[in-house]
Amino acid sequence: MTLSTSQASADPPAAETRAFSLADARLPIAVTGAVVLAIVLVYTVGGRDPGLVTQSIVTGLLLGGVYALVSVGLTLIFGVLGIVNFAQGSMLTLAMFLVYVMGHSFGIPVYVATVVAIPIMFGFGWLVQLLLLNKLTISGNENGPLLITLGLSLLIVNVLLMVFGGRPLSVPGTVDGSFTVLGALVSYERLIAFGGALLVALLLTLALRKTSLGLAIRAVSSNSQGAALVGVNVGRIYALTFAIGSACVAVAGGLVAPFISLTPSVGEQFTILAFVIVVLGGLGSVVGATVGGLVIGLVQTVGALYLPGTGSLILVFAVFVLVLFFRPQGMFGAKQ
């Protein structure tokens, strides 16, 4: 699995220097082809029960949708602000706890709570960018924001630990049950999370391409000084982008909450995975983050058929390292 994926990412750069636009379209196809090929190989010569393989592919895709949702926020923030947001995972945890508190103390059902959490996290992200990051981002300091988001992440996790303790909590779901597809079990909650992820990615892509705000965000992303010259308020766009990235996390947190056991450190694994996905998809690319999320979800669950426990995560990191070295701009990223 890893090998074939890496082959796909290792191969094109040579051609890509010559025919950039061609490689642009070719690479995603190559990646998709490699993934399909790997899956076929697992079925035919993998030596695992086909039912089990189908189940892990379905689980992997559904899981990948959630990864994609967290990564979309991260990639947007990176693309526009040039900041690697180390607090992305802990903001996800914060959103989950918001949903938990709303459900636990006020009896608000989880999906309604998610809708309420979106503006709250949006405001949180706005404030973080405005108060903590804007000065450093605008002055072009690269390491400062990295350290601030790291500090923020530690702060969120440990304050949650102080308030809620380390024992796992659970958020009651509202839609129980599941159905079977091709012999694989699919729970409604996971399907809703998957659908929500795709919807957000779609809305975000549309907003970036079609609205004037999206135009301003893209302008700042490609050249902040130029954007400022034509009258874009760069500081405001920065704050807005970080806020949108946080809102994505709020959606993800709410959708994941029903089927995850909630601890203050639950988001950490998402931070790391989201980095991997963002690098795989190409920094700043919403489509890349979505595809990357699905790929990593598959790598993790199908890999788990062969490497139990945390072993499948090693595969995920192997993909990451290979992409980093052979194609640092990722699948859908612009050439550096």
Binding site: I148, L150, G151, L154, V157, N158, V159, L161, M162
Partner: peptide
């Protein structure tokens, strides 16, 4: 638990 890290996280920021 967590207060120690929270304090130096604030210090860091």
């Amino acid at each position: 638990t967590g207060l120690d890290v929270a304090v130096y996280a604030v210090l860091l920021i």
